[in-house]
Amino acid sequence: MTDGLTIGQAAAFVGVTIKTVRHYHRLGLVAEPERDGSGYRRYLSADLFRLVQVRTLAGAGVPLAEIGDLLDADPERFAATLDDVHRRLTEQIEDLTARRDRLHRLDHGDRALLPDRACAVLDRLPDLGFSPDYVAGQREALVLARTLVPEIFDSFLTRLEHSLDDPQSVELTKRGLDARYWDPDDPRIEEVAFTLADKLLANRALLAMPTGFQNQSDAASRYGLVNHHREDQAPSIARLNTLVEANLRAAGIDIPHQ
């Protein structure tokens, strides 16, 4: 190969584009060959070997900015640098895998925003006779709880799971939902609030807040946004929830107060 190859031939043989070869030249990764008598740059075997090295390292994920020093490094440093590249590639693969999994969860509705345990709770609601609107409200509340009050998300789920396992709690919840059609001053709301609070107090351990949660300056606001979600759509439900919380506080349960 005494006459050498044109840049187009060299690029084709190595498996890159002419633009890529010129980019390697600009970065100083591959020296530009001298021009021959006809004014063309001719790539000899040494040039092609360097191009292959750069292309291979770049294809393996080594940043272009590091390739020049790497090719000029001693064997020990070369091996150490490759180990570092391997570590970074592994991290990138893990990140891409996590992104792929999130995209997959998008195909499954709730699973994009909630863990499987929360989705299992939502899946139970229709079979227990709850309306699609209630399920949607609970879905929103769970997403908000996971985002705004992650400290109590697991305990919130535990309380929901426990209530769904108790037929009496299910019926009381449905009774509370009926209140949305009542006048906010309906005396039945007080009765339902007392009954719901009394049922919750039967398992006081499920109502406990994590240590230090109350001391956080924004705890009450975050908790309130979740616990009073959608109340603006039903004034009677707002009064019911307020009365339930008041009954719990009167019984010694330390609920964040806005």
Rank of each mutant, 00 (worst) to 15 (best):
P126K: 03
R159H: 10
G59D: 00
P132G: 08
V52S: 06
A220W: 12
T97H: 15
A73R: 08
T6I: 03
L160Y: 09
V170F: 10
P256W: 10
L207N: 05
A58E: 00
Y181R: 12
G252Q: 05
D198F: 04
V14R: 00
D74Q: 12
D186N: 14
L248A: 04
A193I: 12
Q233D: 15
L142V: 04
E191D: 12
A208D: 15
V192W: 02
V170G: 00
D116T: 15
L207R: 04
R222K: 07
D183C: 04
E76D: 12
L142Q: 08
L48N: 02
H104L: 14
E66L: 03
A73H: 07
P63W: 03
L160P: 01
P33G: 10
L172N: 02
Q9T: 02
P167C: 10
Y43Q: 07
Q214F: 10
T97L: 13
H229V: 14
S45P: 05
P115K: 01
C119L: 05
T211H: 13
V14C: 04
E171Y: 08
D107G: 13
I189Y: 00
A141E: 13
V143Q: 15
Q9V: 03
L103K: 04
R87C: 08
L248I: 05
D198V: 05
P167I: 15
D183G: 09
S163Q: 12
K19P: 01
L5S: 06
R188Y: 06
V21D: 01
Y134K: 09
P63V: 04
D127C: 06
R42P: 03
A12P: 11
R249V: 12
D183T: 06
A179D: 03
R124Y: 11
T6V: 05
D3A: 15
Y43A: 09
I67N: 00
D254E: 14
R188L: 14
F194I: 15
T2L: 14
R35N: 10
T195E: 14
A65K: 07
N227F: 11
E190I: 14
